[in-house]
C-alpha cells in the first residue's frame, strides 16, 4: 500500500466522520426545534409528572448541555437514550431488534440484485441487439421507472392475495420472499444497465482485440478480461444501492408488515416518538455513510488506474 493511498483512505475516513458528526448535530438541533411539549399528545398530566418526565429525558437541562450529553452517550456507550412512546425501551434495543430482520432482508436483496444484475447485463452485452438483449433492456427500463411501493403492492396483490402462494405477513421466512424481491428489483435493473454499458465499452477495447488475435478462447476472454474490467463501475454503485435498500425498506417493511428497523422508524414518525426518530435517523445515516465509504475505497483499490486526489 503506497503512502498516497493511505493518505487518501485517511482523508475519506475523516470526511465520513465529519459527515456523521454533522448528521448527529443537524438532526439533534432540528428535532429539538419542534415547538411544544413532546408529551402534549398524551392525557393531561400533572405538573410533577411533567417535571419527572422532562428530568427522565434530560429535557430540563439547557439545550447545549443536552447536546453534549447525547453526543457523549452515542460515542462512549452507543446509547441513544430511552424511547418516548414505547414504555421502558431503549432506542438502541428497538433498532437492534429490528436489525436482525432488516439486515437479513437487505443483505439477501443486495446480493441477489448484484448477482442477477451482473449476469443479465453481461448476457445482454454479449448478445447485443438480439431479441434477448432488447427484452432485458425493456424489462429493466420498466423496473427503474416503478417506485418500490408500486412493485411491492402489486407483488402482494398477485402472489399473496390472489394466488395465496406466500403469506402477506413478513414475520415468517416464506413471508420474506416478496419483500426481498421488491427491494432487489430496482437495484437489479440498475446494475443490469450499468453492467451492459460498461461491458460494451470494455468489449471495444484494444486488449480484447489483442486477446482475440492471440487466439485466447472466448470464455476466457469473457471471464478473464471483459467481465472483470466491466465490474469496476458496478462497484461504485454498491454504496448507493445499500442506501436505496435502507430507505426502500421503510416502504417495503410497511407494506409486508416486516418487523424491521424500517417499520419501527415509520411508526415512530406517525407516533411522533422524537427520541426514536432521532436515534434511528442517526443510526441509518451512519450505516449509509460507512457503506458509501467502503464502496468508494473498494473502487479505488480494485482499479489501479484511478488516481488518488
Amino acid at each position: 500500500m503506497s503512502g498516497k493511498m493511505l493518505f487518501y483512505i485517511l482523508k475519506r475516513a475523516l470526511l465520513a466522520l465529519l459527515t456523521i458528526f454533522i448528521v448527529i448535530t443537524v438532526t439533534f438541533f432540528v428535532m429539538h426545534a419542534v415547538p411544544g411539549n413532546p408529551f402534549a399528545g398524551e392525557k393531561a398530566i400533572s405538573a410533577e409528572a411533567q417535571a419527572a418526565l422532562e428530568a427522565k429525558f434530560g429535557l430540563d437541562k439547557p439545550l447545549p448541555e443536552q447536546y453534549v450529553d447525547y453526543l457523549a452517550d452515542i460515542i462512549f456507550r452507543f446509547d441513544f437514550g430511552p424511547s418516548m412512546k414505547l414504555r421502558g425501551r431503549q432506542v438502541i434495543d428497538v433498532i437492534m431488534d429490528g436489525m436482525k430482520t432488516s439486515a437479513v432482508l437487505g443483505l439477501i436483496a443486495a446480493a441477489g440484485a448484484a448477482l442477477t444484475g451482473v449476469i443479465l447485463g453481461a448476457v445482454a452485452a454479449l448478445r447485443r441487439n438480439s431479441i434477448l438483449d432488447k427484452f432485458i433492456m425493456v424489462l429493466t427500463t420498466a423496473f427503474v421507472s416503478m417506485p418500490s411501493f408500486i412493485t411491492g403492492t402489486f407483488l402482494l396483490l398477485i402472489f399473496s392475495v390472489w394466488l395465496g402462494w406466500v403469506p402477506a405477513n413478513g414475520t415468517t421466512t416464506s413471508g420474506l420472499i416478496l419483500p426481498v424481491i421488491t427491494l432487489a428489483l430496482y437495484p437489479m435493473a440498475y446494475i443490469t444497465r450499468l453492467t451492459r454499458s460498461s461491458m460494451l465499452d470494455v468489449l471495444g477495447q484494444d486488449y480484447i482485440r489483442t486477446a482475440r488475435a492471440k487466439g485466447v478462447p472466448g470464455w476466457k476472454i469473457i471471464f478473464g478480461h471483459a467481465l472483470k474490467n466491466s465490474l469496476i463501475p458496478v462497484i461504485t454503485y454498491f454504496g448507493p444501492m445499500l442506501a436505496f435498500i435502507v430507505t426502500g425498506s421503510l416502504v417495503v417493511e410497511q407494506i409486508f408488515a416486516v418487523p424491521g428497523v424500517g417499520r419501527a422508524f415509520v411508526s415512530s414518525i406517525t407516533n411522533r416518538d422524537y427520541t426514536m426518530i432521532l436515534g434511528t435517523t442517526i443510526f441509518l445515516a451512519t450505516l449509509i455513510v460507512i457503506m458509501n465509504l467502503v464502496s468508494d475505497l473498494l473502487y479505488k483499490v480494485v482499479d489501479p488506474r484511478i488516481e488518488f486526489d
Partner: peptide, 23 residues
Amino acid sequence: VDIIYSLPDTLVIILLSVVLGEV
C-alpha cells in the same frame, strides 16, 4: 458539496418533513 453529497438524502428529507410540518 462533498459533505451534502454524502448525506443520506432520503433520511434527511423525512426528518425535515417531520419537523417542518410542525414548525
